[in-house]
Amino acid sequence: MGFYWSFLTVLTLLAITAPLALIFGFGGAIAARSTIAPLSWFGKGYIAIVRGVPDIAFFLFFVIALDQGIEYLRHKIKCPDWPDTIRQGNDFIVCQAAKMPLGNAPQWVHETYGYFIAVFTFAIVFGAFAGNVLFGAMRAVPKPQIETAEAYGMTRRQSFWRIIVPQMWVYALPGLGNLWMVLIKATPLLFLLGVEDIVYWARELGGTKTPRFTDYPHGDWRVWYFLVLLVFYLAFTRLSEIVLDRVMRRLTAGQATSGGEAQRRAAA
């Protein structure tokens, strides 16, 4: 049963992470473009550093750091007069009210929380990549468009939201589409974050089972389980390619690009 559920786990992860990463990326790109120096450094630093680190390495320590960070903040807010220090030797101890989720919450709450921490981590990593793509796309909007907007008396802010943002998507889409493909293929790393995903179950169920511990003993079946995963990933990639292709065609319509020009000519 867990095996089938885990497919859903992966699909929901993708469904939540993609928009969240886009938001992070958008934020990062805006920050990087900012005229305020510290904000710009922050945006550029975020994009450069997170992009520079292999995602596995990031996952291996970031989840625990994030978890402790959240609890630390909650501790400061909820228990301002806590007598003990938080780090006692090796232990990280916050007051009970600051626990995330609360220590006595049922197991499914813990699992859901762990899942969202994982989603958040994915979003941070892929947000950096999305930020890089969007940053490039914002700069790719033809300069005359912005100059025209200025000539019409728009402020920087107005021209950003009314001219750049609507037009940048067509430039960003190929990059974002690719990012989506990379994101799909990064999901097998989910098991590193303590989420029981398809790889976890493929290993668990496919591993050799001796008759002592199960009613259904079998040898090393991991190959077959992994084959199922392979087919799943290939099918999902193909589907994404078809959808992205359609979206691209729609977005290109009426744009001042060679693709848009070709469409216009074909229609005429």
Partner: peptide, 8 residues
């Protein structure tokens, strides 16, 4: 072990 000491 890291998850135990951080209280999970």
């Amino acid at each position: 072990i890291p998850n135990l000491v951080s209280g999970n």
